[in-house]
């Protein structure tokens, strides 16, 4: 068996709702915890594409954010290329995480300026940064809108910008996508799927974890599906196998 690139072992995450002043006045400041992930274990090998499925609120986004090192697990361990999320930058330099929120861009800046800024946060400068920005524009098919401000873009184009931005880092080894085709037209969705399969997985050898609700993607895109329900990993295997035990 190939050594895992990403390994989650018995990861548990609970969230507690923050109390409000109203809660304080009502004497109900403490709320029960919500279990987002409950003992999830998962291994991803380099050069593999894995679909992550589950109903709304099942814990998919939490799993992605923990794998990205943005949120820390309560218990269990997360390892990416022998690094822990507590290693901060050394961990995150290997992660390409496309945030699902289209609000995560600087609306008054152009597409190119947004990418330039984030490339600098990846430690790039000069020619290397400009080359990465050009490559990201190509990935997102964004050349035509490179000089337009983000506020002028449609939701779908902003989503493509999120994906392009995720690929800015010089040495990503893991790509995390949270419903990346949700707002894309069929042409752009196909283009993204081809890019991930042919370029990211096959040529660059990244591990990709792709959360989705789309049945056609579940059936045809992924060699492996992981199903999550109420924070627990309930199925893991080929799509045909997972479909027998889990109905998304």
């Amino acid at each position: 068996m190939t050594a895992p690139l990403l390994e989650l072992r018995e990861v548990t995450k609970r969230f507690r709702r923050a109390g409000t002043l109203g809660d304080l006045l009502r004497g109900t400041l403490r709320h029960p915890e919500t279990v987002a992930l409950d003992g999830v274990s998962l291994r991803l090998e380099p050069g593999t594409l894995t679909g992550l499925i589950g109903k709304n609120g099942a814990g998919k986004s939490t799993l992605l954010r923990i794998a990205a090192g943005v949120v820390l697990a309560d218990t269990g361990t997360v390892t990416l290329a022998e690094r822990s999320p507590r290693d901060d930058g050394a961990f995150r330099r290997h992660v390409a995480y496309a945030l699902p929120e289209e609000r995560s861009h600087f609306y008054r800046l152009t597409v190119r300026e947004n990418l330039r800024f984030f490339a600098s946060l990846h430690g790039l400068s000069g020619r290397a940064r400009d080359d990465r920005v050009d490559a990201a524009l190509e990935i997102g098919d964004l050349h035509a809108v490179a000089t337009r401000t983000v506020r002028e873009l449609s939701t779908g184009v902003r989503q493509r910008l999120s994906i392009a931005r995720a690929m800015l880092g010089p040495e990503p080894r893991l790509l995390l996508l949270d419903e990346p085709t949700r707002s894309l037209d069929p042409h752009q969705a196909d283009r993204l799927r081809r890019f991930v399969v042919e370029e990211v997985v096959a040529r660059r050898g990244l591990a990709v974890l792709w959360a989705t609700h789309q049945r056609d993607e579940m059936a045809s895109l992924f060699p492996r599906l992981v199903a999550i329900d109420q924070g627990r990993l309930v199925a893991d295997g080929m799509p045909s196998t997972v479909a027998r035990v889990f109905d998304p």
């Binding site: 090192g69 901060d88 930058g89 929120e101 609000r103 995560s104 861009h105």
Partner: peptide, 18 residues
């Protein structure tokens, strides 16, 4: 408020810089 904090802190840049 504009939603960029998590995006910046998801990069390898040290939090102190952000």
């Amino acid at each position: 408020a504009v939603g960029t904090l998590e995006a910046m802190l998801a990069t390898p840049a040290p939090a102190a810089v952000v």
